[in-house]
Design a protein around this nucleic acid. Structure first.
Length: 132
RNA sequence: AGGUCAGUCCGGGCAAUUGCUUCCCACUUUUGUGAGAGGAGGAAAGUCCGAACUUUAUAGAACAGGGUGCCGGGUAACACCCGGGGAUAUUAGGAGAAAUUUUAAUAUCACUGCAAGUGCCACAGAAAAUAAACUUCCCGGUUUAUGACGGGUAAAGGUGAAAAGGCGGGGUAAGAGCCCACCGCUUUGAUGGUAACAUCAAAGGCAAGGUAAACCACACCCGAAGCAAGGUCAAAUAGGAAGAUUCUUUCCGGCAUUGCCGGAAAACAGGGUUGUUCGCUCUGAUAAUCUUCGGGUAGACCGCUAAAGCCCAAUAGUAAUAUUGGAUUAAGAUAAAUAAUUGCCGCUGCUUCGCUAACACUUCGCAGGACUGGUUAUUCUGUAUAACCGAUCCUAUGAAGCUCAACUUUCGUUGAACGAAGUAGGACAGAAUUCGGCUUACAGGGCUGCUCUAUUU
RNA sequence: CGGAACGUGGCGCAGUCCGGUAGCGUACCUGACUGGGGGUCAGGUGGUCGCGGGUUCAAAUCCCGCCGUUCCGA
């Protein structure tokens, strides 16, 4: 497996998973409330690891803005995922996480940069790791 | 040289690292790994029209409903495009006393019909639609006179968005298309034009206010739903159909005693077919177990990208466009890929520094390469090759010329231009079955045309 | 991606079909009744009818184009 990759296997795809996470998941936010995440942990799984998805509300901005934000979140997850994944494999758990916008929207930040997204992401991922 | 407007094209480039995805090849038991090739737009947007495609209906008909509306052409089709005609508005000029008319330029036009029918036209005004008569005007008899009464008329006044052809003359008691000239209108005919329509002539004698983006009439077109259409394969759970076994209530008859056998009933309602009607058509009380069968959800695959395609040339046509020939293969995701970061270059704005030498600029030259078009030659023809000419781009490079404006006696100062460094900005916007249009959003830049301004000749 | 509906004072709604005066409840302001508050009564303020064009003498209403909000279909 590539160290900084994000293959289709590591993403959440089925509708049932989404419904399950939104019903029984735990929400966590970054300190500046830009990013929020909702996750669920399953212990009895054959392949331990982390599965991820990004969900952005239509209210947040136009299609171009939402596309860019999603790509930036995925980029920052890819570059920082190693510690979280190793931790889950150690404990033989599967974590399913959906990242989403907090207060961030197109009116606040018209043009996004990776610098504005990365610190919040790292903070949220550390928080998840602590809580598992 | 700069600006407005119109049309058209582009809408950053290159490299490195890290990733996603489709196709294909190799390795691999699968999962995967590696190499190669490809990977958002002019509007992909709004979803406003038109089609292709798919399902449904295939037993249809009528009505209802929706759309379009000068003429001709184009197209698969259109509410789109091209050409023409007409009307309206604005500006400028001409004619006329005026109403009005005419010429030119520009812009706009859902531009059939209100001399088929029905409806509506607030307020004001006498009257808002088979006209009518408030004030005035005129006549009559009556009265001292005014007035009132009976009649004529619609020219003048006033109201309104709009008042029943306009204007001038004749005519008259006063008036009136009552009569006449000009203009408008209607009808008929002739000429030109495929046609819309235009021009001319004759007649009518005003009959015909506006509104159809009011109902409606006329002509033409449209069945409905939409890729979440639809098709194929197909877990788990629940339910359906057929067969076998067991099984409900009421009534009648028989055996006969609370059971068995036979027959009838529980029943008129609910659907389907296009929204409605006609017409057509389907279903039938009901529980449990077993077996078989079909439908079908999650999921997977197909639909899914080669098409009314794009580029170039020739021919036909005023043009839209068509035909022929050549060249080319160009995203296909599905909780949804097409990206992120860094560096260099290029563009625009701001700040600082520099100054006659360089850079840049202008003029005259010149070498090589790329790409494209034309001409000629070789060749039976095409392809191909070679030579020459033209446009564009890239790389390298020789000679000559030179900073500009304002203020100031000068020194110089300020600004522009140029160069260097730093810094900021870099539009609108993201395929979702596919095309043709329309509409809307858009920093900046290139080219062409028209026109305006400034400078030089 | 496809298909529908709505937009009118601060708030919730009529009026749009069939064109001419924008109205109702509540809120707000003023006054009266009360010793005061609440309540009742009387009077009043407040609306580019989402935006831009067109038709018409005249548009919230009819037609066209935009903007925003909400709902439905796996």
């Amino acid at each position: 497996m590539k160290q900084y990759g994000l293959a289709a296997r590591e993403r959440i795809k089925s509708k049932r998973d989404f419904e399950n996470i939104y019903q029984s998941g735990t929400t966590i936010q970054s300190s500046d409330k830009k990013i929020k995440a909702i996750y669920v942990v399953e212990t009895d799984n054959l392949q331990p690891g982390v599965q991820v998805a990004v969900a952005i509300s239509k209210r947040a901005g136009g299609a171009v803005w939402r596309n860019r934000f999603k790509r930036l979140i995925r980029e920052s997850y890819r570059l920082n995922k190693t510690r979280l994944v190793d931790y889950c494999v150690e404990k033989k758990q599967t974590a399913k996480v959906i990242f989403s916008t907090g207060t961030l929207n197109q009116k606040n930040y018209g043009s996004l940069r990776l610098k504005t997204v990365m610190p919040g992401m790292i903070e949220v991922m550390e928080g998840i790791k602590r809580l598992i």
